[in-house]
Amino acid sequence: MNIGLDVGSTTAKVLHMEEGEIVFSKVVPSHRWIELIDDGLDDINIVSTGYFRKKVPHFAAITEITTASLGAKYHDPDAQVIVDIGGQDTKVIDLSNNTFVINDKCSAGTGAFLELAAHYFDIPVGSLGELHSKATKGAQINNTCGVFAISEMISQLVGGFSMEEVIYGLHQAFALRIAQMVPPADTVMLIGGTVQNTGIVDAVSNVLDSKIEVPGTPQLVNALGAALYRERLNDGR
């Protein structure tokens, strides 16, 4: 059994692999990560990743950059650029030259930005994608600063735009912010829990010239990469 344990800023994910196949996975809020390993799993099987990688049981702990690279390659061996949109940061990894950039000083391109907006509207963050799909146009929102973006959002509501149009505009602003970090590539793979928001995927697709790929369970790619790394260690690679 090879186990990937990804305990990030917002959610904790576990994924079990046997003979190269995914046999189990589970997601819980980060502070309940203990629920993912409470059935007597042996640390020797676990490779951990995420913000809390060194605080949870593990045989080896590796960064999300490496797990994202391995997990993305599992889904698409030809993956070139990965955009991992997390709760507190966004990472862009260019597999063609082994480089990456991380945005963790500004909320404008992270899940925290969307949570701020959802909180303002008093709606679940999970409903942003559906509301986005109901808009046929977007309100213009500043794309460089989360604080200014919320201020502009209020101005646009006062100016007569609907909540759906403002959310559409927010997603567009979010995508423009991320696009500044993404190098030119034929395909870009989006991963991370925030990518479950279909509005974000739509906005990023509109902004980038690249083909956009989203794995079936984008929030599990890092846990998958961790499990694959454990498998590598077994193989002595």
Partner: peptide
């Protein structure tokens, strides 16, 4: 910590996927 994460990831990228 933000710097440590980047240095650790950079070291991994050069070692794991040269």
């Amino acid at each position: 910590e933000q710097l440590k994460l980047r240095l650790e990831a950079f070291a991994e990228m050069m070692e794991v996927m040269p």
